[in-house]
Amino acid sequence: MTLYILRRIAAAIPVLIGVSLIVFISLQLIPGDIARALLGPMASQDTVQRYRESLGLNQPVPIQYLTWLWHVLHGDLGRSFTENIPTTALLAAKLQNTLILVTASLLLAIPLGVLAGIVAATHKFSWSDRLGMGTTLVLGNMPTFVVGLGLIALFAVQIPLFPPLGMYDILGSGGIADLLRHLILPAVTTAIPPAAIIAKMVRGSMLEVLGQDYVRAARANGISMRTVNYRYALRNAMPPIITISGLQVGFLLGGAVFTEYIFAWPGIGLQLQKAILARDISVVQGAVLIIAAWFMLVNLVVDVINRMLDPRLRSPR
């Protein structure tokens, strides 16, 4: 197993290098002179030239990439010129807030999606299955920003239960109760579309397992439906469920960017949006790199868990 994990990590390294290349190169695509674009039309030619040199832009592109990569590997993502602090420090502070949001959403999306999928599968073609799958279809096709605005319109405007925005300082004076109050709407928003997709996929893989011979055999042996559904079938449907949930984490990370923007949640996504509009390149690079690396890590963990769950791979003879 350790060997497998090491092999998986080794395989991830070239992909990670590729990811860093894409992030780096995409910023070369900025039309015109980056330094000029950053400094604006008011800056003098002399200032632009000095700025170019300070960014290392006078060097050949491959050298620029290697220099940048070298710094990134040492935890130096450059300097945010809008906030005028090191990008790493800026993003580290935001990362924590995003982590809170994403973790809360995952804790909602995965159990909710899995449970709904199982209930639908075990009540195949009943009205609750049809209703559930119809809802799932609609919710799964909703972009996060529509869900978010819908929830605000409903729960902050029509029935004012929760504050629509105003999470400025997570660890501020409000304490945990305040955090939760502000967290609920954003977390639900981010969780709904992935939860719907998870539900749909879980239903599918459960139905497949429920049609297997060993499930019928267990029923014919008198094992109760509850045990058959929740232990025998679920255990075997686990690998696809975990894979789907892992994929949805990526979806969820993308959605969280929108949620943060809508709810002014002070995380990486909101920072990314500000940075893009301000052309704060090092912040854009850093934020994208962090989210992509995160997504890759999730995929790796999913593969490892699935391997651990499979007795064929665990104890071959």
Binding site: Q212, D213, Y214, R216, A217, A218, R219, A220, N221, G222, I223, S224, M225, Y232, R235, N236, M238, L309, P311, R312
Partner: peptide, 24 residues
């Protein structure tokens, strides 16, 4: 019926390759 299945009437299946649960 569930109480009766497996205790008073038991069954042997057509396909032994797929009738045992692969995960247990």
């Amino acid at each position: 019926m569930a109480r009766l299945r497996g205790s008073r009437i038991a069954m042997v299946f057509q396909n032994p390759m797929t009738s045992l649960n692969p995960a247990f």
